[in-house]
Amino acid sequence: MFEYKFVKIEFKKISGKPKEDYQEVIKSHAEQGWRFVQIFSPDSVTSGVAVGSYYDLIFERPVQK
């Protein structure tokens, strides 16, 4: 059995760049025993253009008993 963790990294409104370095977030979680599973960037439609506003990082690890 696994437990899952979802980490949201929002983009800066002006530049559209992530507020945090997602690679550093992944490394930090790996040191804590989390396995990176997927990065997901859902679209939101603005003025007829699909633009992502954040990343969702998905991690898993075995349930610790």
Rank of each mutant, 00 (worst) to 15 (best):
Y4Q: 05
G16T: 09
V45F: 07
E31R: 14
S44D: 02
K8D: 05
I26G: 05
Q32D: 15
R35P: 02
K65L: 04
Q23V: 03
K13P: 00
S15Y: 13
K8T: 15
H29E: 09
Y55W: 11
S47I: 08
V37Q: 07
K12C: 09
L57F: 09
K27S: 14
K12F: 05
K17L: 14
K19T: 13
G33I: 10
S47W: 07
P62M: 10
K27T: 10
F2K: 15
V63Q: 12
S44M: 08
V37W: 01
E20F: 01
S15H: 11
H29L: 13
L57V: 02
E3M: 07
H29M: 10
Q64V: 11
Y4A: 03
G33L: 01
K27D: 12
I9H: 03
S41L: 05
P42M: 10
E31D: 13
Q38E: 14
Q23T: 08
I26L: 07
R61N: 04
S53I: 00
Y4I: 02
W34G: 07
E24M: 06
V37S: 07
E60I: 03
D43S: 09
T46M: 07
I58V: 15
I39D: 08
I58D: 08
K19C: 04
V49A: 03
S44K: 13
I9L: 12
P62S: 09
P62V: 06
Q32T: 04
K17F: 07
R61Q: 10
K19G: 01
V49L: 06
S15N: 08
S41F: 08
W34I: 06
A50I: 04
P18R: 02
G16M: 09
F59E: 02
G16E: 10
S47M: 14
V7E: 15
P62W: 03
V7R: 04
Q32S: 14
G33R: 03
Q38W: 05
F36L: 02
S28P: 05
E20W: 00
G16W: 04
G33D: 01
P62D: 14
P42E: 11
Q32G: 06
F6C: 03
I58C: 12
F2S: 12
K8M: 10
K13L: 12
P18M: 01
V51T: 14
E10C: 10
F40E: 08
I14C: 02
K8E: 12
K17A: 14
D43Y: 13
Q23H: 11
A30W: 03
S15K: 12
V7Y: 10
K5R: 03
P42G: 11
G52T: 10
V25F: 06
Y54V: 08
F6N: 12
G33W: 03
E20G: 00
